[in-house]
Structure formats: C-alpha cells, structure tokens
Amino acid sequence: MKTGSFEFQIFLLNKKIEKLRIHLKKHKKDFSNKRHFIILINKLKKKKKYVYARMVKWYTR
C-alpha cells in the first residue's frame, strides 16, 4: 500500500482523531489539543471531499 495515497492519509487522520477524541473525553479543559483536534477534522473533511470528487470523475468516464 502506498503511504502517500489519499486513502492511506485519510486512514491515518482517522486514527489520530480517534486518539485525540479519547484524550479529550478525559481532559475536557485541554484547549491546545482541542484546537489540534478541530484542525485535524477540517483536514479530514478536505481530503474526503477531494477523494470523493476524484472518484466521481473516475466513475463517470
């Protein structure tokens, strides 16, 4: 598997987000990690949007 592929990057972002989500449940006032969590979620949204657009183009050929 290519580690630079968008699918793999999405997989890694999901893992990081899951770890931060668990951490933030325990440490509710950790604002630095909460900010990082929000940034990662936005990156994930952008990557999913790109992959979806690419797949739609691929399927409509």
Results as ranks from 00 to 15, higher is better:
residue 37 F to R: 02
residue 38 I to A: 05
residue 42 N to W: 06
residue 12 L to D: 15
residue 40 L to S: 02
residue 40 L to H: 03
residue 28 K to Q: 12
residue 18 E to F: 05
residue 39 I to D: 08
residue 25 K to F: 02
residue 27 H to V: 07
residue 49 K to P: 04
residue 26 K to I: 09
residue 47 K to F: 10
residue 11 F to I: 06
residue 24 L to N: 02
residue 37 F to V: 04
residue 50 Y to G: 04
residue 31 F to M: 10
residue 46 K to W: 12
residue 11 F to Q: 11
residue 44 L to A: 09
residue 20 L to M: 12
residue 43 K to C: 04
residue 9 Q to N: 03
residue 19 K to R: 10
residue 38 I to V: 09
residue 40 L to A: 02
residue 20 L to D: 06
residue 21 R to G: 01
residue 28 K to T: 11
residue 42 N to S: 06
residue 16 K to W: 08
residue 50 Y to H: 10
residue 18 E to H: 05
residue 43 K to S: 05
residue 10 I to W: 00
residue 39 I to L: 12
residue 21 R to S: 02
residue 39 I to N: 06
residue 32 S to V: 14
residue 46 K to A: 15
residue 46 K to G: 14
residue 18 E to A: 10
residue 10 I to T: 00
residue 17 I to W: 04
residue 28 K to R: 11
residue 51 V to Y: 01
residue 10 I to E: 00
residue 45 K to A: 12
residue 29 K to D: 11
residue 31 F to E: 10
residue 33 N to D: 14
residue 44 L to V: 02
residue 49 K to S: 15
residue 32 S to K: 15
residue 38 I to H: 04
residue 30 D to K: 05
residue 30 D to A: 11
residue 30 D to Q: 07
residue 26 K to P: 00
residue 32 S to R: 14
residue 26 K to V: 10
residue 9 Q to D: 00
residue 45 K to R: 13
residue 41 I to Q: 15
residue 23 H to L: 05
residue 33 N to E: 14
residue 43 K to R: 09
residue 29 K to N: 09
residue 18 E to V: 05
